[in-house]
Write a protein that binds this DNA or RNA. Structure first.
Lengths: 123, 123
DNA sequence: TTTTTTCTTCTACATTTGTAGAAGAACTTC
DNA sequence: GAAGTTCTTCTACAAATGTAGAAGAAAAAA
């Protein structure tokens, strides 16, 4: 499931609202908003890719994601790790921790999360 | 500096070797190797984008990256965080720690790294 | 029920991306 | 130095991507 940049933007709107009609989707875009037909094309392509589906209500449709944001995020992260970190999560983690702009507080939070994960693994 | 998939593959070869002639680059590809002209096109596009440069030796060129792998990796990670984690490194870190497949050992290593980073921030 | 608004489907088209042939220049090897 | 090898530049083209007009159907508003 590879989505293009424009498709991802649209997916973000759908993930935000959970489900939405054309009107809602257009509203979600910043100005300058794309043409309705542009969004319609993207929606159709996303349906073809199996990323979204819809329920029909009269002449219009309520669209909703088939692919969860979390699941898709995971594939993105995995792809990054595969491509840039020799497929090693550990290598990535190391890079991330040292290169990112986390504050001391955020690092403390991260440390706590890591500790919890360690506990989980032991459990 | 946005590179396409095919361009990234080529960049990985260049990052690996540091610098390389056409021949070396072709060698680095798995079979089925692309045509020489395909690689030539990609090299030209990468030059146009400012991602690589070259030194001329006779009729051929020794290509080398202008963009470091680390720097580029950073932009990729930042992009991911911006797109999927509400621009919050902390949110991303949390997701990563809980969703990734790090082993207990790797998590311990990560914890150490995080602790070191905390120290750095304090220093 | 006429008009207006909203959507969808079709069609279209410029760009970008992936791939590579043709042709010629330069280098290497007999 | 004739032939083969290696590269580069030009040109080309299909597929993917981003964007949207035209036209018609259905729903909403007047």
């Amino acid at each position: 499931m590879k989505l293009t940049a424009a498709e991802e933007v649209l997916m973000h709107h759908l993930w935000e609202s959970g489900k939405a009609f054309m009107k809602d989707i257009l509203d979600a875009y910043d100005d300058p908003k794309p043409a309705t037909t542009t969004v319609a094309t993207l929606l159709k392509r996303l349906i073809d890719k199996g990323a979204i589906s819809y329920k029909e209500y009269g002449n219009s449709r309520e669209y909703y994601p088939l692919v969860a944001r979390d699941a898709y995020s995971r594939t993105q992260v995995s792809g990054l790790i595969r491509n840039f970190f020799n497929n090693s999560s550990a290598q990535f983690a190391s890079f991330f921790a040292s290169e990112t702009d986390l504050s001391a507080d955020e690092l403390e939070t991260l440390k706590t999360i890591v500790e919890q994960e360690i506990q989980k693994r032991k459990a």
